[in-house]
Design a protein around this nucleic acid. Structure first.
Lengths: 354, 354
DNA sequence: CTGAAAGCGCTAACAT
DNA sequence: ATGTTAGCGCTTTCAG
């Protein structure tokens, strides 16, 4: 209802008997316009309820003041917080956010890249999907759209990256478990070829090596992320695998998991077997999800700087976007940053430390 | 690097010696164009790597094939899943998603409405922020942008709504607790004037009334959502309040909470007081968050149909958007739908039922 | 300081 | 079946 045609510059111009572009200049704050005229124009714009049309604007300016955000799946609290931080920071800088979800599918990934290109976004933040080589991201970047990878690094692609220092996080968590008395430590990681998993495994191994411990064990949890988005974070498989570990012949002193959700499965498997978490078997997680502190016993875990990552990534992207115009000092190498994660020690690993 | 100017219709036209318009028709699948010409044009478009410019397109067509999604905070797993479902369904229908986060602030809410208006989105799905009367949403709707409210109903605004039948969910959960032997039941709800909370309280009261029980108790958990987005879902306050309940003189037989996170706080308070969850005090939650099934004891809770809500809301919105053009049968009343929630009975409420 | 004209990329009339 | 013209709403020359 109501005449839903939007108010345009022309309407204001006509109503005031001035030219369209005087109105434009008045409203965009250009100087070359009389004080009094400007006041009249602003008043009329207000009265008519004028809102600028970004499409038209972007068509001529070439920039839509939009950044793309490509995420695999927001149900991971880590990504959810990332989204918050990014949206907030982006909006503060005047940018709107176009959200694309890939659900870990290579098609989704490709589509997202395509969509971002169509919309000619000013820049994009992307968590690359697991499959494929991410070459389309490189192409998008080459097409002149600044890109920053989030959380997952595409190491051989010379793309900016902001993520977590998972290697160090895993190293310290593992060292802590060892310091708490664990001699045999098992790591459960999702079976996904992405840098965070690889980095955590590396950190885990380094810690054990440093401690002179052999017989490390890495257990792969089959990922279900590729199947369904309904159940993206199921502790079920971790539970099953933990049961196998418990039933096996060499019960580890400690179990480290790549993800707090897995810890839930591990807790249950241990408890059902009559083992006490934090006593018989130590447990360490990753993510510091909201429930971690409230489990019984509370879960020792590595907190990820999600908000920092979001802010850092946006700022880096904005810098790249600006550097795009300044036709200088732009061709420096890819900027890869790993923000520190923080070990949060709780009851699930306290044996021996008091 | 590379000549980053985008390929346009004009480029193809020039390169082939035909008119811009023929190219447009060939590419958009209009019939009036020779088979052979079309083939040549398509090939050339492919070769040049042409991607259409939605800005230009939308400027003339009036539609940007974009829908807005306004959410208060994606860190709530319920909203995260909603986002997934909506993005998926929207993309399937060819729409891009513009994401706006309001963080429960009235300014954010207002800004979001403004931004959606500027972008002239084809429609919007919104979780209205708690404060304010939501009148700007009504205005946006009147301005000709179809709107569907998500999860929170603005009852007096004649806006479409898709949410959960919280009343019934709370009713059944409470009835279940009573059937499990609880005579005194306490409800902990977030202190927020939104329809889901009001509905759950109503359902809770009805169940107790039906059972002829008096002495119901509703405890308000002060919300922290308005303060910080860093800690949107803290069980801390629920924990504190549960402690007070435990220390009080009349320990309830059962505690019902409006949100699984609160249950975490309740679990801890009870456990620390030496009370057994599911034996001494029954506990029921809302949301069926991924951890619910893995708590010890596993949490009885009400599962919310998040994916259904997303799909239903998008479909409803698409219908409204279509009805927008057909200048008929559009002025029917607001469509308000409450999808059924499902009680999931687990160990935290099993006493007496075997 | 202001207006007139041109054009961003695309599509929808009207020609032909 | 194709080309020409016009225009979406806005900004940027270039005149006056």
């Amino acid at each position: 209802m109501a005449d839903s045609r939007r108010v345009t510059l022309k309407d204001i111009a006509k109503s005031l008997g001035v030219s369209v572009n005087t109105v434009s200049r008045a409203l965009t704050g250009k100087d070359s316009v009389g004080e009094e005229t400007r006041a009249r124009i602003k008043a009329e714009a207000e009265r008519l309820g004028y809102v600028p049309n970004p499409m038209a604007r972007s068509l001529v300016l070439g920039s839509a003041m939009t950044i793309g955000l490509v995420i695999t799946n927001p149900s991971n609290p880590f990504y959810a917080r990332l989204i918050s931080a990014i949206e907030h920071r982006g909006r503060a800088a005047g940018y709107s956010l176009m959200l694309l979800l890939t659900e870990e599918s290579p098609d989704g990934d490709q589509n997202a890249a395509q969509t971002l290109l169509r919309w000619n976004v000013d820049g994009a933040l992307v968590v690359p999907a697991v499959q494929g080589d991410g070459e389309h991201w490189a192409r998008l970047s080459d097409a002149g759209i600044p890109l920053v990878c989030l959380n997952r690094d595409l190491a051989d692609l010379e793309l900016d990256y902001v993520g977590v220092d998972y290697e160090r996080g895993a190293y310290e968590a593992t060292r802590h478990l060892v310091a708490s008395g664990a001699r045999t430590v098992c790591l459960m990681e999702e079976d996904l070829p992405i840098s965070p998993v690889a980095d955590r495994i590396a950190g885990f191994r380094r810690a054990l090596a440093d401690a002179g411990l052999t017989g490390e064990r890495v257990v792969s949890v089959p990922t279900r992320r590729l199947e369904s988005l309904a159940l993206p974070w199921e502790p079920a498989d971790a539970y099953r695998l933990a049961q196998e570990i418990v039933r096996g012949d060499r019960l580890p002193d400690a179990i480290m998991v790549g993800n707090d959700y897995f810890a839930l499965g591990v807790y249950r498997a241990l408890t059902e077997a009559g083992l006490r978490v934090g006593e018989d078997v130590l447990v360490g997680g990753f993510g510091d999800h909201p429930f971690a502190a409230y489990l019984n016993p509370s879960l020792t875990t590595v907190a990820l700087p999600s908000a920092d990552i979001g802010v850092t990534a946006v700022d880096l992207l904005l810098r790249r976007m600006k550097g795009q115009d300044d036709h200088d000092r732009d061709h420096d190498r890819a900027d890869k940053r790993r923000l520190p994660a923080e070990l949060v020690v709780r009851a699930s690993s306290r044996r021996g430390v008091t």
